[in-house]
Design a protein around this nucleic acid. Structure first.
Lengths: 209, 209
DNA sequence: AAAGAATTTTAATCTGGATTAAAATAATGC
DNA sequence: GCATTATTTTAATCCAGATTAAAATTCTTT
């Protein structure tokens, strides 16, 4: 049986040490990062599959071994972006003391991952052109993420660490600033350090009671 | 002579009461707003010329009367976005007392226009796929805008209204939050009021000395 | 080192949406 | 109302880039 996408992770490999250790999964991961980088740097319409393949030193056709089509490539990029955001929030909630502290940690953690080795995370600019089922799933993830963040803000208001505010708008403002980062960040380590250092303070200073 | 784009504004009309009053310019303006709306809502790749034309009750081919091709349509959307941003900043600089005050006003003015009748402003997501000359021009406008904003921050630090900070990162954070607005704002007047009311405070609270 | 499976390439096709030319309709000036 | 110009549509092309099938290569296992 051909190991074509959709049928893949060959059953026997799924059990291996770590699913993500198989060559297949490693290469697929590299592909998703390459795609995210292309989409962020050259725009979606400006990135052909060949552009993505070039980054990997492959042929455009080779990508079809990992993914059914371009739509799925974008979809998987967005899922990855969603995972990264969720993990950052999980960690922040686990570590945070007060609501305000949790907000600061979330901002920091998320930026650390975005600008770090898990490297470029795709901006979700093309959600509407995904297939309906994918679109709905990504939208749901995205809404859930916002909702959790607003929950943290409410918690902060409750515990007195955050002043009463419009949590919806506050969330929009902070998330917007974060979501925009991949648009101008190009991998420079010194810049990465600045963002991680500055953003949490800049974005949370307005919240304190 | 056919009034085809590139040769247009028929000379005699350019002198008329206001250039923007000619039917041609009015319709072109409507088209740019329709395009911005489509691009923001459905993504660039998800918006065909037919989609844009449908909003106007026209045929896709009709758009070519106003614009040479899709690339130019995007380019003009971005120029418009640039104008709106520049005007907001001009006004803020004219009205602002201290640096901090100018920052607040800029945020407010820009949001008022974005969410107001001059209505949807295109997110500049596809700059890299513009023609080189257009790309460079838009990038220059964009950089100039950021530079001016950082200038205001420095001025504020100078006049004591803003605490010392990394102006580059502070600019990135605030601009990011603003640039992301068209991504979630869908024209609701009540929401518009909230943004205009909340964002200036949320985004500038961290700056005060 | 040979068999079989995984990965990549070569070389086509296929296609949606951009683009164009010509014709049709609407507006405007005289 | 007629002539001229502006705007829009109809009806084709056109084409870059996605997609596919089959062949070639590389890797793994024994």
């Amino acid at each position: 049986m051909q190991n074509r996408s959709g049928l893949k992770p060959p059953a026997w490999k799924t059990m291996a040490p770590k699913a993500s250790d198989s060559r297949f999964e490693l290469q697929k991961g590299r592909m998703l990062r390459a795609a995210a980088r292309c989409f962020n740097e050259k725009g979606y319409s400006g990135s052909s599959l060949k552009d993505v393949a070039d980054v990997l030193g492959l042929t455009d056709a080779a990508l079809y071994y990992y993914v059914k089509n371009k739509e799925e490539l974008v979809y998987l990029c967005y899922l990855r972006a969603g995972d990264v955001g969720r993990e950052a929030m999980d960690q922040a909630i686990a570590d945070g003391h007060t609501g305000l502290d949790t907000v600061r940690r979330y901002i920091r953690y998320h930026l650390e991952v975005m600008t770090g080795e898990r490297g470029p995370i795709a901006i979700m600019s093309e959600i509407p052109s995904l297939l309906p089922e994918h679109r709905d799933e990504v939208l749901a993830i995205s809404r859930e993420h916002s909702a959790r963040f607003e929950g943290i803000l409410r918690q902060g208001i409750g515990d007195g660490s955050i002043a009463a505010c419009d949590v919806r708008m506050t969330g929009n403002a902070i998330m917007g600033a974060l979501n925009w980062v991949p648009k101008w960040f190009r991998g420079d380590a010194a810049v990465a350090a600045s963002v991680v250092e500055e953003f949490p303070r800049i974005l949370s200073a307005g919240l304190a009671r």
